[in-house]
Design a protein around this nucleic acid. Sequence first.
DNA 1: AAATCCTTCAACCGCCAAGTC
DNA 2: AGACTTGGCGGTTGAAGGATT
Length: 182
Amino acid sequence: MGRSPCCEKAHTNKGAWTREEDERLVAHVRAHGEGCWRSLPSAAGLLRCGKSCRLRWINYLRPDLKRGNFSRDEDELIVKLHSLLGNKWSLIAARLPGRTDNEIKNYWNTHIRRKLLGRGIDPVTHRPLTDAATSVRQAGEDGAAAAGRHLLPLQHPQSERSGDGVQLRQQLPGPQGRHARL
DNA sequence: AAATCCTTCAACCGCCAAGTC
DNA sequence: AGACTTGGCGGTTGAAGGATT
């Protein structure tokens, strides 16, 4: 289709945000709200791509973020929601006030997933590993040792993106639809 | 004390769906 | 109706810091 790039990459900064960039972004959003992310960088005097600004705001700068360690309740809720929704991190995040999809995704991959594997539970199916022959085979290669980074591609393939777990979502209260947010 | 390995998490990438013209 | 733009999502990467050897 020939999409235009989201920004002029040659003229944007990448990598970690500086304090000054954070301050500019926060000041701009406070003054103008979360408007058009595409035009925000130039309006705010930032050499960043709009996507990058949005991500930085949502995952780090938003004032209502909780941050800090996950409580036991949150931990259990994430597992429960994941068993219902799969890797729908934004939907899971919508039910955890003050948490972001990125934060939950990271927490899942670094903590919960390993914990479930340690308990002999398949983190994909949420069933005992011995029950799911295929999963066991995968987990054998995967193993607890691989619980860290570069995990196996999780299930819920592309096709599910379009389906989007509508039925599952209807079982739960709260925001609905693909763009349900906090 | 230095080197190496491991873990964490902020940030990026590519894709898709919705919205607009 | 369809081309195009934009926002948003999930997967992945890589730097930084901690743990281990």
